[in-house]
């Protein structure tokens, strides 16, 4: 089990951002992970990650198609992927992260 924090952001900030958040959360919870995803869409940042949450996270997942400020994640393990990977197969994204962090899913 991992603690995942992350950001979703798409080009228009209307739909994909929010769909991807839901997909990541569902897939992570299914694997027993704790997860919080910040959305950076057209209505501005929501569900914003606190410094404490970032500090205590095992990994930072950036599913973004636009540039986001990464300065908050200095010293953290960051996995950056295009949002399309989450749209296609959220479960395998989370599994891959487990492998990368050394906590493989069996």
């Amino acid at each position: 089990m991992m603690k995942i924090v992350g950001i979703t952001a798409c080009v228009a900030g209307i739909a994909h951002t929010y769909i991807a958040k839901e997909k990541i959360e569902k897939a992570a919870i299914k694997l027993g992970d704790e997860v919080k995803i910040e959305t950076q869409g057209s209505i501005g940042p929501e569900n914003v990650l606190t410094p404490e949450e970032i500090e205590s996270a095992d990994v930072v997942l950036l599913a973004t198609d636009i540039g986001v400020d990464k300065s908050r994640f200095k010293g953290k393990k960051v996995v950056a992927i295009p949002i399309s990977m989450v749209m296609k197969s959220p479960a395998s994204v989370i599994k891959k992260i487990h492998e990368k962090i050394g906590d493989p899913v069996h």
Binding site: A15, I19, E22, I43
Partner: peptide, 23 residues
């Protein structure tokens, strides 16, 4: 979605909410 979302933040929030549900 309007180009300049003035006074329509509530609607944008709702659209975002619906998008999330589609996930």
């Amino acid at each position: 979605v309007a180009d300049e979302p003035t006074g329509s933040q509530t609607h944008l929030r709702l659209l975002a909410d619906v998008a999330g549900r589609l996930g």
